[in-house]
Design a protein around this nucleic acid. Structure first.
Length: 983
RNA sequence: GCCGGGAUGGCGGAAUCGGUAGACGCGAUGGUCUCAAACACCAUUGUCUGCAAGGACAUGCCGGUUCGAGUCCGGCUCCCGGUACCA
């Protein structure tokens, strides 16, 4: 545009044109960013090389669930960090795999389908497209040609295939790995169960080879089901009778369904399970080999919850039996059947003489047998009340003591004492044996229970203190009241007791895990169908050639009238038997959300393979994930299941690495920052117009806070006009009481980011206004990656200014609206080199430490200092462009080309080399402390001897003043750090 | 309840090994430029006290170790994540 100050054009108009022209000449992020995004797409810039000598580097993000609300500013936080690492590693000479995809099965899509009748595949696809568009706008260096979607039949074919492999495998404790089921059958045929050291169901029978070989096909098949790594068992679910469906824990609030508010009860249902407990020990020890944060490893360790203890059998006292009258607890007859004793697991077998009662979970299988007629009514009431409480409520509630006596007794095998049997809901059926031997002197919960029910509290260690006030769980001192261990120490007592118990067949040393086998069925539609059909009541795998078993169409996404899962609605959905043409019922449950995400990092290696989940070549090249970034909320779910499947696949020879994710970083959650306007109470009714008062003008007024859209608020000041337009319901005829400067100041609160709180900030608006580079820099600048923080755009202008200041190192705006390239080839000064190399060093060490916020600030310092020095020299700026490029890929790609390099080639360049020679200092400014407080600073040469420093410091005028004639007690000189004079 | 994490100016945060608390940025205040605004630039900005030089206080709270503690130890408070069917 040509501009002339023409006499016919008024001065005002001229300036208006000038202003427009100036904006145009300034850096235009919209055009530039679009241009390079298109360029990268067109040139497959970020596809890894296939023929290369470069080392590989695999950077992975936890893939998102494509929700209807679209990508919000919290999602990109981790993606930006991983993208910076990916781009940095390319500059460092690695062949980088950096893919993205979608975890596209899940409850919200199904919930939406229930409400609208829309097939979840359709809404999921719409959401996916929106996510991709939003992700592309941010300039990530993903190789989109490798995108995976867990709900795509070409993907879930392999999820189903892995399920089948698990079904076809058992865990051999001798080799400590999973093996094909055939090796187990082989052992059975040769030696029966004697040398089959397997992880299996508790009720798996023992048999000889002859017995095995004589079994019918059905019998032996039934037995193998007890060994497979995926198997059917009863598990507790949230059953809502009114909705006729199983609910997720998320859908249950305060014991009633979130939808409708109907009562929810705990119900046992037949479910597919995963034998993850077989891997408990390897999941534990594997943690020592991977570079994850200690806190995350600790969470997994606690989740697995290995405890070393003993299991002990307490014989049940038959009604007619009397203790001491010919009763022999260790006689074989008293322990002959599983219903003749109660088995407990304890980590403190040494406290067994302190047992004064037994507590069973209300779900314990012996409850009805143990309940005496007099107690039946009370027990039944207690059991049904417990059914209404979730496991978490039961664990959390430690204040209220509740329980009920069954009327029966068992025998403490050590001292033949009669022990009353109670039920209490703090004992969980799923942990240990669902029974606890209660030692009130040593366990606080048992102590509370004993006190409440008036049961005796027996001291067992002479070191126990104040046990009439509270339990004392000490292991110190010597045992008292303790029969065979009287006088022993803890270290002596435990082995002595275990020996005694083992000798009598009454117990044994045992390792117990808190972790339970994982429930793998969901009574849902939008998940992978389980590739199983039922014949005569037994499950069989479908033929591998029939994979993928695709989701059938159904009319409604609800359970059937008879309470079967939604797949029961599918018409004519039956498995066609092999030869005889008969048809069989499919499994009607689907897989849980974590199925598809437990192996997806392998699919990215070779996403379009039809013959395998990924080719051997691809897996052998990429091995495992070098850096994985995602939220801590996955600590014990996804990250544990993924490690489990990975170990299984390694055992079966499909993958080479024991652990899938070498290094893991958790990004903190971005919370919403809600804004509020305040309506004076009593206004805004039908007859009274609303009065809306600014935060600092509320004073004595009674007000109701109302959420206001954060997108019409800037620096906590409301755009009143925009508010009126967007919310006429709240603002019709409204009176606004504003601050003295005319502004309306809103209130704020940190909450979860959600549509209903009007606090969702969408990255697209930021990208449009400030550009993707600014969004990327700003999200990193916000604070440490791993820390949770509320989203707040208050500081984004600073980053925006930084980008323009950076641009002005290259271009100067002219008065006529054009701009001039001002980069020179002048020689560099030591000061400039020092600034540059300080920044190179900082950028490199920060990126290696994943401290992205501090490197952004070092870039700001660098640009500020270069601007102050008026430095526009090519040799400095070219390196600066390179080190900034992982953070701000668009503007740097533009400037890289402007500097005369090949377009689009910055990601193939080399990261500048740091040279420490430029940073050498010859003096250090010592802070001088008097009694730990800095009073002055004095500069000394780097190599100055501490004794000389001490002498000069003491001679210093200010130090003399503080000494006030006294001589110092002590002088601490730490070279290149500090001097402290103690008076 | 249990497990894990966190708390530093008006705000986001920095201080990497126990060594100058508050880098960098936002906001605010004053100024330059402008008819005006925006942009840009300059200066000030933890609190209290003092004319000033300076001094006192200060990293959620209480106590300890140390020449020296935001950092290490003991005891609390509050907030966040997970708690087995949200992903």
């Amino acid at each position: 545009m040509r501009l002339e100050s023409d006499h016919r054009t008024g001065r005002k108009e001229y300036r208006r044109l000038l202003r427009r022209a100036k904006i145009m000449a300034d850096y235009n992020h919209r055009e530039t960013e679009k241009y390079w995004q298109q360029f990268w797409d067109d040139h497959d810039t970020y596809k890894p090389e296939t023929q290369t000598d470069k080392p590989k580097y695999y950077v992975l993000d936890m893939f998102p669930y494509p929700s209807g609300a679209g990508l919000h500013v919290g999602h990109p936080l981790g993606y930006i960090a991983s993208d910076i690492v990916a781009r940095y590693k390319r500059l460092k000479g690695y062949n980088v795999l950096h893919p993205m995809g979608f975890d596209s099965f899940g409850l919200p899509a199904e919930q939406y389908a229930i409400q609208t009748g829309q097939h979840p595949a359709i809404t999921t696809e719409q959401n996916r497209e929106r996510y991709i568009e939003q992700l592309k706008n941010i300039g990530f260096s993903f190789d989109w040609t490798r995108e995976v979607r867990t709900s795509d039949p070409n993907y879930y074919k392999w999820t189903q295939w892995i399920f089948m492999e698990l079904f076809r495998s058992w865990y051999n404790k001798d080799t400590d790995r999973a093996e094909p089921i055939e090796t187990l059958l082989d052992k059975f045929a040769r030696n029966g169960t004697t040398d089959a050291n397997a992880v299996c169901d508790e009720d798996a029978p023992t048999f000889t080879a002859a017995e095995w070989n004589a079994m019918s096909a059905r019998e032996s098949y039934e037995i193998t089901l007890k060994y497979r790594l995926t198997y059917l068992a009863d598990a507790v679910v949230n059953w809502c009778p009114a909705l006729g469906t199983v609910l997720a824990n998320d859908e249950v609030k305060d014991g009633v369904s979130e939808r409708g508010g109907y009562p929810v009860e705990q119900k046992l249902m037949r479910q597919w399970m995963m034998r993850i407990t077989a891997y408990a020990d390897r999941l534990l020890t594997g943690l020592d080999t991977i570079d994850w944060t200690e806190s995350l490893k600790e969470q997994q360790r606690n989740w697995i919850g290995k405890s070393v203890g003993a299991s002990v059998k307490f014989p049940i006292l038959e009604k007619e039996q009397e203790v001491g009258k010919g009763y022999n607890p260790s006689s074989p007859s008293s322990l002959s059947s599983p219903s003749s004793f109660i088995e407990v697991f304890t980590t403190r077998v040494d406290t067994i003489y302190g047992v004064t009662f037994m507590v069973l979970a209300p779900e314990h299988e012996l409850v009805s047998q143990l309940t005496t007629p007099e107690q039946r009514e009370a027990v039944e009431a207690y059991v049904s009340a417990a059914k209404m409480r979730s496991e978490r409520d039961r664990m959390a509630d430690t204040k209220a003591v509740s329980g009920v006596f069954t009327g029966s007794y068992c025998i403490n095998p050590l001292n033949n004492e009669k022990v009353p049997i109670y039920l209490a809901d703090y004992v969980l059926a799923g942990y240990g044996t669902g029974a606890v031997m209660a030692v009130p002197s040593g366990d606080q919960r048992d102590w509370n229970f004993a006190t409440h029910f008036g049961l005796p509290i027996i001291p067992i260690l002479d070191a126990q203190k104040d046990i009439d006030q509270q339990a004392d769980n000490t292991k110190e001192g010597r045992y008292i009241n303790s029969g065979i261990i009287d006088g022993m120490t803890y270290q002596q007592a435990t082995p002595a007791l275990i020996d005694w118990l083992e000798g009598g067949g009454l117990g044994r040393g045992k390792i117990n895990y808190r972790m339970r086998d994982a429930v793998f069925s969901r009574q849902r539609y939008w998940g992978e169908p389980v590739p199983v059909y039922f014949k005569d009541g037994l499950p069989y795998l479908i033929d591998e050639s029939d994979l993928p078993l695709e989701l059938p169409a159904i009319d409604k996404y609800l359970p059937t009238e008879t309470g079967e899962p939604p797949l029961g609605r599918a018409e004519d959905w039956k498995y066609k038997g092999q030869s005889d043409g008969s048809r069989y019922e499919y499994e009607l449950s689907t897989m849980p959300g974590w199925a598809g995400s437990s192996w997806y990092w392998y699919r990215y290696m070779d996403p379009n393979n039809d013959a395998a989940f990924a080719s051997k070549d691809a897996i052998n090249y990429w091995q495992n994930v070098d850096l994985y970034i995602g939220g801590t909320e996955h600590a014990t779910g996804h990250l544990l299941y993924s490690r489990f499947w990975n170990k299984f696949m390694k055992d079966r020879g499909y993958v080479p690495q024991e652990e899938p994710f070498k290094k893991l970083i958790n990004q903190g959650m971005i919370q919403g920052r809600s804004n509020f306007v305040y309506r004076v109470k009593g206004t805004g009714t039908e007859s009274i117009a609303p009065v809306l008062v600014s935060l600092n003008q509320i004073n004595e007024r009674e007000v109701t806070p109302l959420h206001v859209d954060v997108n019409i608020v800037e620096n906590d000041v409301l755009d009143i006009e925009a508010f009126k337009v967007s919310r006429p319901d709240l603002t019709e005829n409204a009176e606004f009481i504003v601050e003295s400067d005319g502004r309306y100041v809103v209130g704020t609160e940190v909450e979860k980011m959600s549509k209903s709180k009007f606090n969702v900030v969408n990255p697209d608006m930021i990208v449009e206004k400030y550009g993707a580079d600014v969004l990327r820099l700003y999200e990193m600048f916000l604070g440490p990656l791993e820390q949770a923080k509320p989203w707040n755009t208050n500081g984004i202008d600073g980053v925006y200014r930084f980008i323009r200041k950076f641009w002005r190192l290259f271009y100067k705006d002219n008065v006529d609206g054009t701009s001039t390239w001002i980069v020179t080839d002048d020689e560099l000064t030591p000061a400039e080199l020092k600034i540059l190399h300080k920044t190179i060093q900082k950028a490199e060490s920060d990126i290696e430490a994943y401290s992205f916020n501090t490197s952004v600030s070092s870039f700001m310092i660098c640009v500020n200092e270069l601007a102050t020095l008026n430095c526009h020299k090519r040799a400095i700026l070219q390196d600066l462009v390179l080190i900034l490029s992982p953070y701000a890929p668009h503007i740097t790609e533009e400037l890289w080309a402007a500097l005369g390099n090949e377009a689009g080639s910055i990601s193939k360049a080399q990261f500048p080399t740091f040279n420490p020679a430029y940073l050498v200092e010859d003096a250090f400014e010592y802070p001088i402390q008097i009694n730990g407080k800095v009073r002055t600073t004095i500069s000394f040469a780097i190599d100055r001897a501490p004794t000389e420093i001490e002498r000069e410091v003491l001679a210093d005028e200010i130090v003399q003043k503080w000494l006030d004639g006294k001589s110092p007690k002590k002088v601490v000189v730490v070279p290149k750090r500090i001097v402290n004079v103690v008076i």
